[in-house]
Design a protein around this nucleic acid. Structure first.
Lengths: 197, 197, 197, 197
DNA sequence: CATGAATGAGAGTTCATTCAT
DNA sequence: GATGAATGAACTCTCATTCAT
């Protein structure tokens, strides 16, 4: 596959991402992607065999390019920001993602993993969740040391935060949720850590 | 619609519920329900026009019959149980539901509301969520009064609890979750309220 | 499946038979049969799932209705015809079939069994062949007893006859063969048995 | 077309022959041959326009290279072998071919001529058959002269032999046939000629 | 000459939906 | 009411064939 093909493949993935973001996973057909890309029916099959295959590559692509979390962390940490600032930053990022439904793969991702139960060690949802829990736990622990946070169970608190975020995410996709409501929850989480400070 | 028809309709809904519990929402076709009910294709159309219509009625049916929450509350409250006992009971009920994936409509419900964005005031997910938040808030407030609980923001705490439960629910459907993990989260929630100030 | 359906199924098989007779097995698509029957695409699938399934039923149908061999034998034998007359009759029947390419499933059958190797005990080609060999052997043996035939190895002779017929059949489908040529071979076979009479 | 092209064409034909031997004629696509040759799709079209064209050239190639029959005859005859020995040799060669289904084009050839009815004078199957009949007739006649064979109708006998062989061939492709069964038929044919009058 | 990306026709298959009985 | 045969739209997937490079 030449360089040109690689670019075409990237093009298809980009268009497919838009389709998945707009319509979720289950409803998307190969034809939908063909139409979005303005290519021929058979043409798509030169690159991908199924929507499943495409979606998996879109998911991987996402992690590589959309970054966000990591970048923010990396930058904030390298700038010696305080733990509470970094955590606040992280929560702000999550809020952005929560509110930006149009470009988000959240719904498609949930639909995909409803239909495709991957083993836990290969499940990116699991991996991401656990990774985030560890990072937040570290932040909280650090914050406790510096006196920014008060927390007897950093691990429990970080899991609590992540489950709340997950709850917000699914609620935003099913019942809709306002930015204000998200703010309220984030504030509650932060207050819990800053309590009695 | 005669009495016989009503019974037939209930029969269809019961069978349809099983199908939705097993296969989710999107994958279920009119044919699947016809097969499960062992009735004729045309026969189903006498009662329902689409899987969407069926699913909505299944959802309503559910609230009526499956109860659980209400019953437990009603009974516990009428028995003058303590607030902490009632809350613990509620969380135990939630755990049961979380772990009993086979009979649960969770996945189907999520899929349904991904595809059908109802206005908030008609969205049963929203209604249920808000209702539960209110009940829990009341419980916490009562518990604070009796000295069982320590909590500065009962409303915030109850919302936090509900989002965590929602987070557990979606995680249980996408990455899978052990009973132990659920226990840990519930324990964390209870400890947060019982914490000696 | 009601009586009407049975008739429709028979109708489809009849039309399918014509298609197979005209075009062989491999080239025939579900669409071809749909077109021949003037029914809808989906309609055919109510009765059959594949051309393979249809062809197998056509083959069975054939044995039931087209008769020929059995009838001729039955009649001839019941009429106390001589062995040589019966054998001659049989060979005449074979000739008819050989020359009537238009309505014959020969080519389709060969194509089918090229693609679908059935176990010998289920292979109708094998069954028919062996059955015919036995009948002919009996005829020859009887003929030898009555002095009509001279033959030291009736079993071998009957197999020889059947292989020649098979050879004529395949040649008629691949290079074409004239009635005269068939006559010549049949004559040779009969002369071999009547030799020195 | 340069020398290099000729070699490439030969290479394609060789690979195509393997494909046809393995899969018959009808199932083979241009893509299959492209894959077997490891050349580009477009590349194949520089040499051949269709599988039909390729198969015809494979058939011609076969006669040229695979020889066997001719060689055996030529050698045997030039060595002054007896007629019965040469005939036996010929039948042994036929048996080998019959039993070696894997490398044989038999099925593909039948399939091809089912689909492509060539005029008799251009039909290689016809030509080969008639050629073989003549040779065998000559052998038998010679054998009769030397007293090796007893046969009143060498032409008829040789045609009989060839039709039996054709019958064995088609049976071996459709119902399968053991080496033992082939031996039995060959023995029967030889005995017919050696039979003491 | 050679490549391989691209096209589009066409086959298979499934279902929502209708309708005569 | 109830049946289930029938229709036709829509989707998946595969190839022969072409053509710019």
């Amino acid at each position: 596959m030449g360089e040109k093909s690689v670019r075409k493949k990237q093009f298809i993935l980009k268009k497919a991402r838009e389709v998945f973001a707009e319509r979720g996973y289950k409803d998307v057909t190969m034809k939908d992607i063909v139409d979005a890309c303005q290519i021929s029916r058979g043409g798509l099959y030169l690159y991908f065999d199924s929507t499943k295959e495409i979606f998996l590559e879109v998911l991987n692509m996402k992690e590589g390019s959309e970054s966000g979390e990591e970048d923010v962390f990396t930058k904030a940490i390298s700038e010696n920001a305080s733990s509470s600032d970094i955590l606040a930053l992280f929560l702000q990022e999550q809020k952005k993602e929560l509110c930006n439904q149009a470009e988000s793969l959240t719904m498609a991702t949930y639909e995909f993993f409803f239909a495709n139960k991957l083993p836990k060690n290969e499940n990116p949802l699991k991996t991401q969740f656990d990774g985030a829990v560890q990072i937040i736990e570290k932040l909280i622990s650090d914050g406790v040391k510096t006196g920014e946070f008060v927390c007897e169970d950093p691990k429990g608190a970080s899991r609590n935060i992540m489950y709340v975020l997950e709850g917000l995410r699914i609620m935003s996709q099913t019942v809709g949720i306002t930015e204000k409501a998200v703010n309220k929850e984030i504030l509650y989480l932060m207050k819990g850590l800053l309590k009695e400070a």
